[in-house]
Nucleic acid binder design. Structure first.
Ligand code: ZN
Length: 304
DNA sequence: GATGCCGGGCT
DNA sequence: AGCCCGGCATC
């Protein structure tokens, strides 16, 4: 059983270079590597478009691609911004890119020309939200909001979450909204603080252990992965590595350590050395492979 | 180049 | 659900 896939968040139009929950593409950053190539680094490739301005104009503008300036620790991931081949809506695509991760929050501009966001494809969450009277789908609908005020997320986290919502002189028709893109969440809130709280309460394991979570503890692995960004990773490698922020380089087993969530990642997974069906039987004896191997999935016969 | 397999598409 | 494959990371 592996623990869900990606567990990052970022702003909407960005995409994290993650595959299978393990960081992809080592190179670039190269922190001091204490060990051989097999176990070292591996998380420098984290690709973030942090410097991006969250303003819609920039994100969806005429340029077809947006990306972060290449830097020591941020390669850029181009994200199609405007047009997309028919059958695949652009927003859908961007959403997919973002949703590739588990969560992302982003300011949305409501009331802007529909063309900017119009999409036939499924975006149920905020499409729905759009249909409802403002203030209705706000915090009021958050089932898990205790009356007690809680401390805000660390400032860094907030930064990664929303950036500055660009306090434009608001044309009375435009309104900045925030959407939670945590896997299959999509909640839309009207304030950054509200979104922070939502994320903390609903998606984050509190820094005291999962059992301290509000009323209903989410201990085991039974719940939807969407609520377990930091699952009690299996006995083998119960660690997360902080790749950015105050706690950079530190390891721990929960987001409790000083690290903005987006940069708290599991270390790279080594490839097992067990020979799998493909290697054992060869391409010509494909019928002998286990089904998983035949389907290019993780082998079920020869486990690691 | 070969192998392992995630993510996602199709039926 | 079963089945397949693109693409990527690792060997
Ligand atoms: Zn197999």
């Amino acid at each position: 059983v592996h623990t869900g896939r990606s567990r990052f968040w970022g702003r909407m139009p960005l995409r994290l270079g993650v595959q299978g929950g393990w960081l992809s593409r080592p190179p670039a950053l190269s922190p001091p590597r204490p060990q051989g190539p097999a176990v070292s680094d591996g998380f420098a490739g984290l690709e973030l478009a942090l410097p991006l301005e969250p303003r819609a104009a920039d994100l969806w503008g005429p340029g077809s691609w947006v990306g972060a300036a290449p830097g020591p620790q941020s390669a850029h991931i181009p994200v199609p911004a405007q047009r997309a081949p028919p059958g695949r809506a652009r927003l859908d695509e961007v959403m997919a890119a973002a949703a590739l991760t588990s969560l992302s929050t982003s300011p949305l501009l409501l009331g802007t020309p529909a063309a900017a966001f119009s999409s036939e494809s499924g975006l149920e969450p905020w499409k729905e939200a759009l249909g409802r009277p403002p203030g209705d789908w706000d915090l009021a609908s958050d089932p898990s909001s205790p009356s007690t005020p809680s401390p805000p997320l660390p400032p860094e986290a907030a930064h990664f979450l929303f950036g500055e919502p660009a306090q434009r002189k608001r044309k009375n028709s435009a309104q900045v909204m925030f959407q939670c893109l945590w896997k299959s969440c999509g909640k839309v809130l009207s304030s950054a603080s509200g979104m922070q709280r939502h994320i903390r309460v609903v998606h984050l394991v509190p820094p005291g252990g999962p059992e301290m979570a509000g009323g209903r503890a989410r201990t085991g692995g039974s719940g939807p992965a969407s609520r377990q960004p930091f699952p009690p990773s299996s006995s083998a490698n119960p660690r997360y590595v902080c790749v950015q922020g105050p706690g950079r380089g530190r390891v721990g087993r929960s987001p409790a350590l000083q690290c903005p969530i987006p940069f708290l990642v599991p270390p790279r997974k080594p490839r097992g050395d067990a020979k799998k069906c493909r290697k054992v039987y060869g391409m010509d004896r494909r019928e002998l492979w286990c089904t998983a191997c035949r389907w290019k999935k993780a082998c079920q016969r020869f486990l690691d």
